[in-house]
Design a protein around this nucleic acid. Structure first.
Lengths: 333, 333
DNA sequence: CTGTTAGCGCATTCAG
DNA sequence: CTGAATGCGCTAACAG
């Protein structure tokens, strides 16, 4: 078996020094064409594969980016991760992935791992509400970019969508359609974007001179079955409403399911608007009108910014990006 | 700034040798309680973070598992990846992720990267049809497990679903419901599971004494819009059928969309069965009847096997797992 | 253009 | 129980 061929073995076989091999392999200019040729041939024949670990130790950088994601199986985040991988790979960076299940403790562990792995930079998709990990990163001077969630009181690089704007767009649209009683099925208050979308919802009401009705503002979990149950409750309570704006498409789907079970037609009886524009929503029975959040772009932009930062310090303003959401009108509202 | 604290710095501050620090930090028995205590305190105070790169170089192992996935944004694979991460993390392994977009060249690149990164083992989710990369892995003696796709003529570890069985279950069910003309909208022939599911489809027809009609066997892309267009074509051709079995839920969704646009009611006019049981399908207008492929388990089992393999060579029989699919009856058929 | 040497940070001999 | 020395594989000085 011929594993673990090192630069030394190649050097011996090629009759040159390790250093020459190193330079030939790395395409450095100061090697004669003939020598380089021979070294490459020998390396090839021996099945040499560079030891990245040794190289990283020597170079004090790993060309790796850590990605800490709340839930890879969530289509929103999965799309973000795909965007990240795309840009990272194209720039010669590899990806170290951790899943946190939205758990702060696991996020801490994940960051610890990334620190030990000596990744060059970190992407948090998104970070948890508790700023501890972010502060740790700052203290450790590990470059990072927050994705899809940021802190109001902590100056950090981030790429987020304008969630308040998204909430406004959705609600404003419904009101312009003539709806005065718009139910908002929101996600947990800890989620930054939930707060933002709620602010947008309230602003839209306000701009149209509608007084918010507390019974039309519901908070549920980030899961589909949460919004499903919440919607059933609202229906059972007999609260009147003609439109629903859901925190996310996932939640909108729970809403749709509940409405269908109770015989309410969408959009005839109730108009529904979601948020995120994940795949699938366009092929629902009634394709969902929703706010598009360009997930892949979120990942791509953040990665671009992170990599730029790795090369030269970037002024914070250039590392804070807010992407504009866009209302996608489909059949549900 | 106090970055890059090494074991040496800790040693100096604690007034002991680097060696003692190393042993204290790694919880080795041969250190006095007092010394250990002091070392840990100093390390803590200095903000020491072990350099995993150095450790890996020294140990000749990285405690990292490479995951080469065809498309992380595909909910099926995303669920698999989540399962992988779960088990890997619990066993102290980190994940290096590569996305290949179902492209063989990118798969090769990805494997090259993993080799250089010196991951301890590799998971292919799934591998591409060309066996080149798998053969390379064997030659290089890098432990690996194939997920969701395998080679008939190459003895390797794998965890797959019994796709032929799945295809049979779906078709058999439709026939028992009284359907004689079952349209099969299959994925690309290069996909191993597509071949398998087709075999299952044909066997079910055969067992019920139905002669396969070529016009009822269509091949399309693995994407939703592919099956959507294919379905429209079939409808336009006026081919008669009363049921559709789609290669995947994604394809089934394209089928549903086309049927809806042409005014065909599901399941009254046409029964539809999908494959995979990805989330969302249960909350469609007509919840999709489908074949459940326990994606997360696919990832978990494969990771378990890979890690076992890393500890001691595993007989091949124990490293080849076929998971049984299960028909999930919902409203669409 | 090429070779020699040193050291990245750590864990592991081997001596005390 | 603890310390000094060695080398994992590589690249960057520095000499020739």
């Amino acid at each position: 078996m011929s594993l673990n061929i090192t630069i030394r073995d190649v050097a011996a076989r090629a009759g040159v020094s390790v250093n020459t091999v190193s330079r030939a392999l790395n395409n450095r200019p100061d090697v004669s064409a003939g020598t380089r040729e021979r070294v490459l041939r020998v390396a090839e024949r021996l099945g040499y594969t560079a030891n990245g670990v040794a190289r990283d130790l020597r170079a004090k950088r790993t060309s790796a980016i850590g990605v800490v994601v709340a839930d890879v199986a969530n289509p929103f985040f999965a799309a973000v991760v795909k965007g990240i991988e795309e840009v990272a790979h194209a720039s010669g960076y590899s990806i170290v992935l951790c899943n946190t299940n939205e758990d702060y403790t696991k996020e801490q562990e994940a960051v610890g791992l990334m620190l030990r792995k000596r990744v060059d930079g970190l992407l948090l998709v998104p970070c948890q509400k508790h700023p501890g990990t972010v502060m740790l990163l700052q203290r450790r001077r590990l470059p990072f970019v927050l994705i899809a969630r940021r802190f109001d009181d902590l100056p950090t690089p981030y790429v987020v969508n304008d969630d308040a704007r998204g909430g406004f767009l959705a609600t404003d649209y419904l009101i312009r359609q003539g709806h005065r009683r718009v139910l908002f099925v929101n996600g947990p208050k800890e989620i930054w974007s939930a707060q933002q979308r709620e602010a947008g919802y309230l602003r839209a009401l306000s701009e149209h001179g509608i007084t918010p009705d507390p019974s039309l503002l519901r908070v549920t979990t980030a899961m589909m079955d949460g919004s499903y149950r919440t919607m059933l409750e609202v229906l059972d309570e007999g609260v009147s409403f003609t439109a629903v704006y859901a925190f996310s498409d996932l939640l909108a789907m729970g809403v749709l399911k509940a409405l269908r079970e109770r015989g309410r037609k969408v959009p005839q009886d109730v108009a529904v608007v979601g948020h995120d524009d994940i795949d699938f929503v366009e092929i629902l029975e009634t394709p969902l009108t929703t706010v598009d959040m360009s997930k892949s772009r979120l990942g791509r932009e953040a990665t671009r910014i992170l990599i730029e930062q790795l090369q030269k310090p970037l002024p914070l303003e250039q590392a804070q990006v807010v992407l504009e959401p866009r209302l996608v009108m489909r059949g549900s509202a």
